[in-house]
Structures are given as C-alpha cells and as structure tokens.
Design a binder for these strands. Structure first.
Lengths: 335, 335
DNA sequence: TTGAAAGCGCTAACAC
DNA sequence: GTGTTAGCGCTTTCAA
C-alpha cells in the first residue's frame, strides 16, 4: 500500500506538502493540492490509522461492550448511542463480552491500549473487579448501570434506569389487579442487577403484606429457554401462582410458550408481566405487559456523557437516572 | 501513561531490553525480566496499540459488519465466527452498518486503514459499488452471501446458504399441504438477497403451475412491523391467500400478530412459513414453520476462511455453499 | 545478554 | 507556499 512518501516522490513535492494537501490543513497551493489528490487517487492511497493515532492520540472510535447479543434489550441502547456518536464523526464498535468478566477486562485493556477513545460498558455484574479496572484505566468509560463504590473514589459516569423501581411497578400492578400468589422469575442474585430486581419484587410484596416463600422465586438466565424451564418447574408444584413477574421480556416469552403448549391460558389462568418492553412484547400473542426501560435514552445519554469527557475534557463525575414506566397489554388482568 | 522508555529509565536498562522482557522474545536475563515486569506493573504500563501495529502490521482484530442489529438472524453468525476467532487470539468488533451502503463503504475504508486485519461483511445488497470497494481494498474480506461479478476477477471468499432454495422449500411445503393461493412477503427486490428470495417463490409457483399475480407479492423490510403492515394491506383485498411465505421470521411474526389481533386463526385460516429459524420461531405461539439457515455454520466457515487468508497467507479464492432445511411447526398445515 | 539506532507512516513546529 | 526535521512508542537488526 502506498504512503505519503511515495506520493511525494511521484508528484515531486515533499511529504509534508503532501500531508497538508491531503488533510486540507496548513498552506498548500491549489496546483499542488490537485496534483497530490490525483496521485493519491491513482495510487489508491489510504492513510494508515495506526500512524495517525500514534501522532494524534485520537482514534475517533468508541468501544461499546454488551454482555449478550441475543437480547433485544440492548438494540435500543446501541441505536441511541450510535446516533450521538455519529454526529461527532465517531464510530461505534460493538464488543460482545458474553456475560463474562474476563472478556470485559480484556476490552478495558484494549481501551487502555488506546484502541478506542472511550467506552460504554454494559454489564450484568458490576463488582469490585471490573470497577477497579474501570477506575484504573484512566480512560473515559460510562456504565449503563448504577454503581457506587464504598470508597467513594469512583471517577466514571453512569446512566441508569431504576430497575428496582421497575420491578416494583410490575409487582404492584399485579397486586392491584387482585393477585395474591405472585411469583418472581429472575436471574442469579449474585449478579448486581439480578439482586436489584429481586429486591424490587420482595420489597413490594413485603410492603403489601404478602406472604412470600422461597418457592415463589425462580432463577433463570434471561433467555427464553430459561423462562420455559421455570414454568416447567413451577407446574410440578402445588399452589400455582396467578401472577408472574419476570425480570425480562425474554423469560416472560419462554414462560408464555410453556403455557401455550400446556393449555394454560394467559391471562385467564395466569397473568404475566415482563420487563424491558422490547419490540417483541408488542408482537407476541397475547401482548406482553412490560416495563419501559428507556433503552434509547440510556444510549443517548451515555454517549453524550462520553463525548463530554472526550471532546470537552470534562473530568468530574456525572450520573443520570431515568424513570421506568409500566405498559399494560393483554398478558395481565384482574384476577 | 507510561511507556517503555520510562520503564527503562526506572530500572536502569535500555528500552530494547525492556521491550524484550515484556514481549518474551529475544534474549533477556531472568533478573532483568523480573525487574522490568515489576516496574511495568507498578507503573501501570500498557503497550500502545497504535505503535505496535505500526511496526507489526497486525492488529489481531476482525471487523464484522452487520446491517441490522435488531435481527436475531445475525446472532448465530456472530457467535459462530467469534468461536473461531477466539481460538486464534483474535477479537471480533461488530460494526452496525444500518442497511446502508455508505456505512459499509466507510467500514471497508476503515479496514483499508488497517484498523483490523480482515472483515466479515454481511449485507443485504451486494452490488457493483460495494463489491468494487471489496475487491480494491486489498484486504481479506469474506462475504456471507453469494456474489460473483460478471468480470470474474473477484478475489474475495464467500459462504452462503442458498436462500433461493430455502424459499423454494418453504413454497413447496405450502403447495404440498394443498394450498393454492400462496402469497409472498419479501423485501425490496432491488436488493440482491430480496430478489433471490422472490425468485425462489416465483419459480416454485411457476413450476407447480400456480397462477400468480402482482397482488400476491408484498414488500416489507424484514421487520416485524412491516410484516404486520403487509397483513393489514392483504386483508383489505379480496381473495385472501391461505398460505404465506415470509422472507424472514420477523415479518412472519408481525404477520401473525395482525392475525391474532383480528381473530384470524393460524394455521386454521392461514398457514404461515418464515425463514431463518431464529430462536423466536420456536418460542412464539403458534410455533412458526421456518427454514434453517445455518447461521452458526456460516459464521464459523466465514471466520475459518478469513483466518486462512490472514494466518496461512492463502491468496486464491474459496467459496462455500450450505444447504437450507425446512422445519415444520404449528403455523402451517394441510388446507 | 545488552544497547544503539533505524524505521513503521503520519503530523506539526519551524525554517526557508 | 514548501521543505526539513523531530518525534509518537514500539520492534528488531546489528554491533558490542
């Protein structure tokens, strides 16, 4: 591949003039510029990204880490963020971290190598390990979850929708519909976001004076199949709940699939509420009652915070909280 | 951020010794190595990616372009490819090209700048413009569609599932079930893959001696909403079809949603066949008859072809064809 | 085993 | 308006 020296030689000018002609910055006569551009074209010239970066310290790329590409929840976030980055001439590169902290650390390391100028980090499980890496990276990173270290020396931004409150809304909705046996299908509560969701359900149940026991709590992994499996398990037990709060739409869909297959009527026999309000919620049958999680807004806000750090040089911490909201569809109704 | 010079100064060795210690290549005494590694750790050292690349000409990154993150069809491909790249220590970076040829060209340009070592390019619309860019990039690029230029001088690999045949299978299935009014919901036939799918339906209809007219052909954009809209339009017309071939699962799901909302029974009133056999096909109700498109295998094969070019230096062209397959579920049955 | 030095391709300050 | 030159941070050859 050609470089500016070869072009310079070909047109009989110096490399710096070529560079000026190409970049449009600095003085350069019209003639020279034209000669250079023509030659560049002919020689099929492309600047080398690495060389530019080494000088500029700017890649104009953002690394966007998502734990799970199968989950439509993230699509909105990606779109929202992308819209902002684009405006500033930045590219978004998605990194699929597979729900795996090692992958997250690898990508933070890649960011430290300055492969990108900043990062949006989505994770189900912010913990001391990855937060430490974030803090020590010295690079701009925005989380899409709430996280505050006990030591209070965090220096990253975050944008979040209050998941705890979201699950409360879902639970309260079922309670208001007169349900009294309400189960919860969530994730592993060792993970931060799963714990929050679980608490949202538990606290709301407690507040309403509902009895709960362990057998009302089902553990999935946010996939449709795990929702299905939870339904299977539930139906082997006595005292089947009449209302189900699912920690995301996908599990709710899996749950409903089981019900459809086994002639359990939704919402006649059981009311189901999902969370995330993904496109699917409106498109399956029956339509799934769900919680709006403002994915696009999260993405847009996260991207904006990142650009502030990168372009405006903001160095103090900023956090943004967004409100979840209930959407009622056909999958839930009065008991 | 620290660099090898600062480390060298700190430990009282030369930068080249530090580099050797860090890379593990070349001679370096055990003592020196230990000193260096310790200092590097203390100074929170990370190598600069750009500097390495400038020397090595290797980024160990692959750019994976997908037109549409909302479509679960691509998930399997990403996973399959990722599995292979990982084995070779390569990272996959996803680029969302939004069904937009300009974005594709931008990413090909980014590849030419050597921001990555190779690319898997997924597009709905391979045409002269993007194929020219692919051919001229001089970089290893694998397509996940069939494409052969008339001039026959292509030098890229591709892996594909025969979509034409896939739609034929879907169409034949409905014909065999006794349907005679069979509609097709596809995409804009200006796009290469949409045209292939359309032809699959048309040719199979012709072969079976079925009459077809324009009003049996509906144009969507591969989203659920567009499937819904096609259903809406269809129902305003007379002579409603009894069988529907959809060019992907998402449109089929949107179509079914319309039917559910309007008390049209699937499959009693209308049989529906999708394409892609995404996870959703099995999880919605009724289960969607669909065409297996071997997404993971496409991904794995594409990644393997790419690694052959990058690591083994293969320079001749290779193409791989995979067979689609019908899966029958509840959404289609005998008329 | 270690160090000096050149060079990857580009940018930008400075001199002409 | 143009050219010279000195880096950016790393790798690698060659000499010591």
């Amino acid at each position: 591949m050609s470089n500016i020296y070869e072009i310079a030689e070909k047109v009989g000018l110096s490399p710096s003039t070529v560079a000026r002609a190409l970049s449009g910055k600095g003085y350069c006569s019209k003639e020279s510029r034209e000669k250079v551009l023509k030659a560049a074209q002919e020689m099929n010239y492309t600047p080398t990204h690495a060389a530019k970066t080494l000088k500029n310290k700017r890649t104009e790329k953002i690394l966007f880490c998502i734990p799970d590409i199968y989950n439509p929840f993230y699509f909105g976030m990606i779109k929202g963020a992308n819209d902002i980055f684009e405006k500033h001439g930045y590219y978004t590169l998605l990194c699929y971290t597979k729900h795996n902290i090692k992958e997250e650390l690898r990508m933070i390391e890649t960011l430290r190598e300055k492969y990108g100028d900043g990062m949006i980090l989505v994770s189900f499980n912010f913990c001391e390990t990855n937060i430490k890496a974030v803090n020590e990276s010295g690079m701009p990173i925005v989380l899409t979850n709430r996280y505050d270290s006990p030591h209070g020396n965090d220096n990253f931004d975050y944008v979040y929708v209050d998941t705890y409150k979201g699950i409360q809304l879902a639970t309260r909705h079922l309670i208001e519909q007169g349900h009294d046996r309400i189960a919860f299908i969530g994730g592993n509560i060792k993970e931060q976001t799963s714990l929050e969701r679980f608490k949202g359900w538990k606290d709301e149940m407690d507040r309403s004076g509902m009895k709960i026991d362990d057998r009302q709590v089902y553990v999935g992994d946010y996939t449709m199949d795990s929702g299905y499996a939870c339904a299977e398990l539930m139906m082997t037990r006595s005292n089947i709940p009449t209302g189900i709060v699912c920690a995301n739409d996908l599990m709710a869909i899996g749950f409903i699939r089981y019900c459809n297959e086994h002639k359990i009527r939704i919402p006649d026999d059981i009311s189901v509420v999902g969370m995330d309000n993904t496109d699917l919620a409106a498109n399956i049958s029956p339509g799934l009652t769900s919680i709006i999680m403002r994915q696009e807004e999260i993405g847009r806000n996260a991207a904006t915070l990142l650009m502030e750090r990168i372009l405006d040089g903001r160095t103090y911490k900023k956090t943004i909280r967004l409100e979840p909201q209930l959407v009622v569809r056909e999958s839930s109704r009065k008991k």
